[in-house]
Design a protein around this nucleic acid. Structure first.
Lengths: 222, 222
DNA sequence: TCTAGTGTAAAACAACCGTTTGGTAGTGGC
DNA sequence: GCCACTACCAAACGGTTGTTTTACACTAGA
């Protein structure tokens, strides 16, 4: 079964340069953290998927928590850049909000494991590292509360709504998706994003305003 | 420092009947799981808060996972009974949905630790135990999708919306609250529940219908 | 007074954890 | 052909974990 090091074919034992090993490590760590959760995951398990020994991981990291930190930091930066670019596009606040919601859910579903690790294991980090990632006043939430506040100035959203609460309301519905979405399942990311955006926009908009896009009539497959 | 067993005063060493110890155990376990997370929590820690040795816990449980199961099961039953009673009251579907949302968030914030353990640590259980708790087709979600479907029959909610997606949308926003709510903080559970209900109902209702209750004008303290 | 049962102590168990240390085969630059 | 460096192995470390076993002080009932 276990061939001597004739040639590849084994998943283990290959010596690789840092530039190749590092992203591999991040990817494998993400998968293992996703499957087992951070605390239940072991460096042993990560190392053996890479084909090296767990002690060898310390050539790349200084601690297990470092690994989680690196994973989460990269996911957060990626996701934040995504919605910030969507939020600063054309159109009024509600039109931009629609794009952000659809785009964020699409990104979330397309990067399910990474997102799940970020959303679920963030609190496994030490508090100062959590703060370091989220930024002083929750950059992520800020994008949404700013959109809501802008919508209020534009007269599209009633002044009675608290922008921060509205932002948390939106974030909650979106950040729950990773819990039940499965690729190839009942709903596509697109379907989810569009219906969520529809309901959310309608929930925020003033009474006498109706969003131009009608309720999408597509029947989800399955 | 360490008094010989003269009389009480120490938090440890008291022998108690099962009826008294068992709920104490569940409560302490809930707290520890809340603070550290299930995997990172140790039976050692739970036992020492009770003033007994970790081995003695096995007089009450058969495994650590059993403990989590008991905690989660009781929380789920409690929460489900709460929203089911609210969902079967008077009024049309949207009026009942409003009550359910406000009541559920109130319950969630009033039982923050229990709820957090349920929502965050459920997936630490073996899959069959998860299924055993959630019920065959997610009893919790069913309450909301049924309300949405009923609202559609009553002509209050457009037929184009998928009731299951709508239910997941609602659940997400509510189940995110435990992540940021803090007692005595910026918002009361009541404020959160009412604004969330307001936005959610409006997001679901057909265009030419306006909910009787206006947007709550209260300014949240802080 | 004897007895059965209850709630806990005490101690040990193997297993596994994250981390450290020291060594080394291979490689590219000089 | 030497040297420094890179990427990893090999082995061990102390500590903690969940769990099991045996024993025992105490209590209630007969």
């Amino acid at each position: 079964m276990r061939q001597p090091p004739g040639r590849g074919q084994r998943s283990s034992g290959e010596r690789k340069p840092r530039e190749e090993r590092w992203p591999e490590l991040i990817e494998v760590a993400t998968e293992v953290f996703y499957e087992k959760g951070y605390e239940a995951a072991s460096l042993q398990g990560i190392a053996s998927r890479l084909g090296i020994l767990k002690g060898s991981l310390y050539y790349y990291i200084q601690s297990k928590e470092d690994l989680l930190f690196e994973v989460i930091k990269s996911v957060h930066e990626e996701g934040l850049a995504n919605i910030e670019s969507l939020a600063t596009g054309d159109g009024d606040a509600l039109q931009r909000l629609r794009k952000v919601i659809v785009g964020h859910i699409d990104h979330e579903c397309g990067n399910l494991k990474k997102t799940a690790v970020f959303l679920h294991e963030l609190q496994a980090l030490a508090p100062d590292r959590q703060a370091q990632i989220l930024g002083g006043e929750h950059a992520y939430r800020g994008v949404f509360s700013n959109l809501v506040a802008t919508g209020q100035k534009e007269g599209l959203i009633p002044e009675g709504l608290d922008p921060k609460l509205a932002a948390l309301w939106i974030l909650g519905s979106m950040n729950w998706v990773y819990r039940w979405f499965r690729p190839g399942g009942e709903f596509t990311a697109r379907t989810i994003g569009e219906q969520f955006a529809e309901m959310t926009i309608r929930g925020l908009a003033v009474a006498d305003l109706q969003a131009p896009g009608a309720v999408p009539g597509e029947q989800p497959a399955g």
